[in-house]
Design a protein around this nucleic acid. Structure first.
Length: 571
RNA sequence: GGGCGCGUGGCCUAGCUGGAUAUGGCAGCAGCCUCCUAAGCUGCAGGUCGGGGGUUCGAAUCCCUCCGCGCUCGCCA
């Protein structure tokens, strides 16, 4: 049990005993207020009714009945609250020891032996990743890292939609449109080149009935299993995917598994799902198409039908998605899907259908709202997009300029390397710092913010700590906090002690923005300490303070690691 | 129209399983490099927590209602 847990237990034990002495039933809340007020507080308002006395009086009475010793350093009544302070030095010593002992594993939860599959990104291979969708890989990757830190075995997976009209349309375009009639991207990446074919193909399909017919027949041949068309589509999708993977790599996102949707047609599992669904009592037919009636499952709206075959018996995306999830469940204990908010209804239907199929596992969706532009929604088809590649380039370039303003002692290569770390970090942090369900409007000046609540702020603090430790040379770490008496030092120690709880919250409750907020808090505590307390020039306290810097560096590194953001040793 | 989500200082945001003066940041103003990286630090200013009802000792938080924004309601993916 951690020190904080045993403190909590002890408080509970003593409050229970005191209430018993007052002939009151021990029904009360325990909360953690701001750390400058108390470590643990019990509001006495609820007890006031029971005891027919004012909360202030009750708090005073309880305070007089409870002695401060052991893990409890102080008991105080204030404003109708009974406030407890834990033995700070015990906590601080414990924190320092823990960080020095565990290093990069400080805050890591116990290995759980539970395998979680996190599916994320999964954007259609019809165009480059744009900022509207960029939340997906960044949220997915960050969540995966936080879950690993919690002690789960995590596998990340990209579900490639290589089936259906969109990708066939693109394939038609690539193979039938005269390249000289298509705009060229100045970026030498297949996803950027190919998207122009996609746009032209879309336009021509809308305008020319002959093109529409051609694409329809191609789609038909694809679904009939024509190897020639399948090969062509696969080729195009592979090219697109190579571009998408390169983009992901540039923001330090790599996925463990790529699963192609066409697999579930080829291996017959999608057909199998159709067969099984048709045997259920919820199945109905309309004009030859099979559907599930979901009105008894809490689905509202005009249409409670979940159609799972076309009238020619071929499968739909949702059918294959069912087969995919059943397959995935066989490979993990839990499955988390990071999805755009447009998938909400579909996902709800998917979960019900899985239940009808008798699946014991359910996917756990995590939704995010789309990023829009000030002038409206982003659209690959219309070309009203900001591409992630362009955002990254711009961010890295900006970071490079900033380094140039500050440093003249670095090589070109060093500057480029640091610029990349900072630029990419800034973009990732900016997305992860807000709750996923908040709708976001993309603005260049906000996306490229390097001050305040930003990745460079955390990175700067880390680099600062590194620099101090470099200058300090060898020293003996002091795993004892008795020389750290300053308020700035105490606040920093308190922040450091909170990290394990933040790991738990970010993974277990899937609040990855809590990790970002914590990083900001820790960096701020450190910078304040830095400004107020001399370290290298101090005498008796030097080793103690250097230990504090060392521990801060370790925890900042762990935070940045959870966020998937690089930790530059200088900047 | 139905469902789901969001609405917090000029802008972004935390808090939302009810509790003490509503958290940070950006932009603004005023200071701080003879000391460990000023991408930093200190201070000032800025709030009807969308509006209105209700529940409660207590509401940003729960309930009702209205308003605004987003997503969605395909034999698309």
């Amino acid at each position: 049990m951690s020190l904080k847990e045993s403190f909590r237990e002890e408080v509970k034990r003593r409050v229970d005993a005191a209430l018993k002495g007052m002939q009151a039933s021990p029904i009360y809340e325990m909360e953690s207020p701001d750390s400058d007020i108390a470590d643990l507080a019990i509001p006495c308002f609820g007890l006031a009714k029971q005891l027919r006395r004012s909360p202030m009086v009750i708090a005073e009475e309880l305070a007089s009945l409870i002695e401060a010793d052991g893990p409890i350093q102080e008991v105080k009544a204030l404003n109708g609250y009974l406030n407890f302070r834990m033995d700070q030095h015990a906590l601080f010593d414990d924190t320092l020891k823990g960080i020095i002992r565990d290093g990069q594993d400080y805050g890591r939860g116990k290995r759980k032996g539970i395998k979680i599959n996190v599916e994320h990104t999964s954007t259609n291979p019809t165009g480059p990743i744009h900022v509207g969708r960029a939340r997906n890989p960044i949220i997915g990757d960050t969540l995966s890292r936080c879950l690993r830190m919690c002690g789960y075995d995590v596998e990340t997976e990209y579900y490639v939609n290589d089936v259906g009209k969109q990708v066939v349309l693109l394939t038609w375009g690539v193979n039938n449109i005269d390249p000289s009639s298509v705009d060229k991207s100045d970026r030498d990446k297949d996803d950027h080149q190919l998207v122009f074919y996609y746009r032209v193909a879309n336009k021509r399909m809308e305008e020319e009935p002959s093109v529409q017919a051609e694409i329809a027949s191609m789609l038909q041949r694809f679904e009939d299993g024509d190897p020639e068309v399948i090969e062509l589509v696969r080729e195009t999708a592979e090219k697109m995917m190579a571009g998408l993977k390169a983009t992901l790599r540039s923001i330090d996102v790599e996925l463990d598994v790529y699963t192609w949707e066409s697999k579930y047609i080829a291996d017959g599992s999608a057909k199998d799902v159709v067969r099984r669904l048709k045997e259920t009592p919820y199945c109905g037919m309309e004009d030859g198409a099979a559907y599930l009636e979901l009105k008894d499952f809490g689905i509202h709206g005009k249409n409670t039908r979940f159609t799972f075959t076309r009238n020619d018996g071929t499968t739909l995306y949702t059918t294959r998605d069912l087969a995919y999830h059943l397959d995935k469940f066989g490979r993990c204990d839990r499955a988390i899907d990071v999805l755009g908010e447009d998938q909400k209804l579909g996902n709800q239907q998917l979960i019900i259908a899985l239940e009808i199929l008798g699946s014991e596992k359910k996917p756990e969706p995590m939704f995010y709202s789309f990023v829009s532009l000030p002038e409206g929604k982003m659209s690959t088809r219309r070309g009203t997009v900001v591409y992630l590649d362009d955002l990254i380039d711009e961010a890295v370039e900006r970071a490079y300029e900033e380094i140039g303003k500050r440093r003249d002692d670095l090589s070109e290569e060093q500057m480029r390397g640091i610029a990349r770390t900072i630029g990419v970090g800034a973009v990732r942090y900016n997305i992860v710092r807000v709750q996923p369900e908040k709708q976001l409007t993309f603005r260049w000046n906000e996306a490229l913010n390097f001050d305040g609540n930003s990745a460079p702020f955390l990175q700067y603090s880390y680099a600062r700590a590194c620099s101090m430790l470099r200058k300090a040379g060898d020293f003996q770490p002091v795993q004892d906090s008795h020389l750290l008496e300053d308020d700035f030092e105490k606040r920093l120690l308190r922040s450091l002690s909170r990290f394990p709880e933040v790991v738990r919250e970010s993974g277990e409750e899937r609040k990855i923005h809590a990790m970002a907020a914590y990083g900001q808090e820790l960096a701020a505590s450190f910078n304040q300490f830095y400004a107020a307390v001399p370290v290298l020039s101090s005498k008796a306290e030097r080793d103690s303070r250097l230990t504090l810097v060392l521990c801060t560096r370790t925890v900042l590194a762990n935070v940045l690691h959870c966020l998937g953001i690089g930790a530059p040793e200088e900047m």
